[in-house]
Amino acid sequence: MTLTLTVPPGAKVRVRITNENGETTEIEVEPGETVTITLPAGSTVRVEVEVVDPDGRKRTETFTLKP
């Protein structure tokens, strides 16, 4: 399973991925970048995406991906 994120110009994104064992991976994606994350097959993962807009506003979306 893959997750692809494209960050709009001016925004910053931090992604936290937590697996079933509670292990967390965190990455930051710079403005204008596209990143593809390969998620472990057969695992349920929690993905938290934090977006910081150019004006400093933050918003966070959290979702769970199941196999």
Results as ranks from 00 to 15, higher is better:
30 E>L: 05
10 G>A: 12
33 E>K: 09
17 I>L: 10
37 I>V: 10
5 L>D: 01
8 P>M: 13
24 T>K: 08
5 L>Q: 02
38 T>N: 07
31 P>A: 06
12 K>S: 12
49 V>Q: 00
31 P>H: 06
25 T>A: 07
28 E>G: 12
7 V>E: 13
58 K>V: 12
49 V>M: 03
60 T>L: 05
1 M>W: 14
34 T>Q: 08
38 T>Y: 08
43 S>D: 13
39 L>M: 10
55 D>R: 01
16 R>N: 04
43 S>F: 12
23 E>H: 07
66 K>M: 14
38 T>P: 08
12 K>M: 09
51 V>G: 01
21 N>L: 06
51 V>I: 11
11 A>M: 01
33 E>C: 12
35 V>D: 03
10 G>R: 09
9 P>E: 07
22 G>T: 11
20 E>W: 09
22 G>K: 09
36 T>F: 12
31 P>S: 06
20 E>Y: 10
13 V>D: 01
1 M>N: 03
53 D>M: 15
27 I>T: 06
24 T>I: 06
19 N>M: 11
50 E>R: 01
10 G>Q: 11
17 I>D: 02
10 G>K: 10
9 P>M: 06
65 L>D: 01
35 V>F: 11
61 E>W: 15
16 R>F: 05
14 R>P: 02
5 L>C: 11
7 V>L: 13
24 T>P: 07
60 T>I: 13
53 D>H: 04
67 P>K: 01
62 T>E: 06
32 G>M: 14
36 T>Q: 06
27 I>W: 11
60 T>K: 03
28 E>T: 04
40 P>T: 14
6 T>F: 13
37 I>H: 12
29 V>R: 10
54 P>K: 10
45 V>R: 06
26 E>V: 04
58 K>A: 03
45 V>F: 12
37 I>Y: 12
24 T>E: 07
23 E>A: 06
22 G>I: 10
59 R>W: 15
8 P>G: 13
39 L>W: 09
37 I>D: 05
60 T>V: 10
15 V>H: 01
8 P>D: 13
33 E>A: 11
21 N>M: 07
8 P>Q: 10
54 P>M: 06
5 L>W: 12
19 N>T: 11
65 L>Y: 14
45 V>D: 02
65 L>R: 00
46 R>T: 09
1 M>S: 03
27 I>D: 08
17 I>Q: 08
53 D>L: 14
58 K>T: 09
15 V>T: 09
24 T>S: 05
1 M>L: 07
62 T>C: 15
41 A>T: 09
51 V>H: 04
13 V>K: 01
36 T>Y: 13
18 T>A: 05
32 G>T: 13
49 V>W: 01
1 M>Q: 02
42 G>I: 12
17 I>Y: 15
66 K>Y: 15
12 K>I: 06
8 P>E: 13
13 V>S: 05
6 T>A: 10
42 G>L: 08
67 P>M: 15
20 E>S: 05
10 G>S: 08
48 E>D: 06
15 V>I: 06
7 V>D: 02
33 E>Y: 11
54 P>R: 06
35 V>E: 03
56 G>M: 00
5 L>A: 05
25 T>H: 04
48 E>F: 03
65 L>S: 00
29 V>I: 05
58 K>Q: 02
65 L>Q: 00
28 E>K: 08
41 A>W: 14
65 L>E: 01
34 T>D: 08
4 T>G: 05
43 S>G: 13
33 E>V: 11
39 L>F: 13
60 T>Y: 10
22 G>E: 09
5 L>G: 04
32 G>R: 13
65 L>F: 15
40 P>I: 14
24 T>M: 07
44 T>S: 06
8 P>L: 12
14 R>F: 12
14 R>L: 09
52 V>Q: 05
47 V>N: 00
30 E>M: 05
7 V>G: 01
31 P>Q: 07
38 T>E: 06
45 V>H: 06
9 P>H: 08
38 T>S: 06
5 L>T: 05
11 A>F: 02
9 P>N: 07
39 L>N: 10
52 V>F: 02
4 T>K: 07
53 D>W: 14
60 T>P: 00
25 T>Q: 09
23 E>M: 07
44 T>W: 15
28 E>P: 12
55 D>A: 02
62 T>M: 03
42 G>R: 14
7 V>T: 04
59 R>N: 01
1 M>C: 14
49 V>N: 00
13 V>N: 01
37 I>Q: 12
27 I>A: 12
33 E>Q: 08
31 P>Y: 07
47 V>Y: 00
58 K>S: 05
24 T>R: 07
53 D>G: 12
66 K>H: 13
28 E>F: 03
47 V>I: 06
48 E>S: 04
19 N>D: 06
59 R>K: 02
67 P>C: 15
19 N>I: 14
67 P>N: 14
14 R>D: 08
2 T>Q: 04
48 E>N: 02
10 G>C: 10
23 E>R: 07
61 E>P: 01
19 N>K: 08
31 P>I: 15
37 I>S: 12
64 T>Y: 15
21 N>Y: 09
36 T>P: 07
63 F>P: 15
20 E>A: 05
17 I>G: 12
19 N>Y: 12
50 E>P: 00
43 S>P: 05
61 E>F: 15
62 T>I: 14
67 P>R: 02
53 D>Q: 03
40 P>K: 13
4 T>Y: 13
7 V>A: 01
2 T>Y: 11
15 V>Y: 08
35 V>K: 06
14 R>G: 08
33 E>S: 14
56 G>F: 00
45 V>E: 02
43 S>Y: 11
4 T>S: 06
44 T>H: 05
36 T>H: 08
2 T>P: 03
25 T>R: 08
50 E>D: 04
55 D>T: 02
42 G>A: 13
1 M>D: 03
67 P>H: 14
30 E>D: 07
54 P>N: 04
53 D>P: 00
33 E>H: 10
26 E>I: 03
57 R>S: 09
38 T>K: 05
18 T>P: 08
20 E>C: 14
64 T>V: 13
51 V>L: 02
65 L>C: 15
39 L>S: 09
3 L>E: 01
40 P>W: 15
27 I>F: 11
67 P>G: 09
47 V>H: 00
54 P>F: 09
63 F>E: 15
21 N>H: 08
61 E>Q: 08
47 V>T: 00
17 I>R: 10
27 I>R: 11
36 T>K: 09
21 N>F: 07
55 D>L: 02
41 A>K: 10
4 T>H: 10
41 A>F: 12
54 P>C: 12
63 F>W: 05
66 K>A: 14
32 G>I: 15
11 A>S: 09
27 I>C: 09
16 R>K: 04
20 E>K: 04
13 V>C: 09
13 V>W: 02
34 T>F: 13
54 P>Q: 09
30 E>C: 09
7 V>S: 01
29 V>S: 10
66 K>I: 15
27 I>G: 12
17 I>N: 10
36 T>V: 12
19 N>W: 13
14 R>V: 08
65 L>W: 15
58 K>P: 01
52 V>K: 02
19 N>S: 09
11 A>W: 08
38 T>A: 09
31 P>R: 11
52 V>M: 05
18 T>K: 04
15 V>P: 00
19 N>F: 12
1 M>V: 05
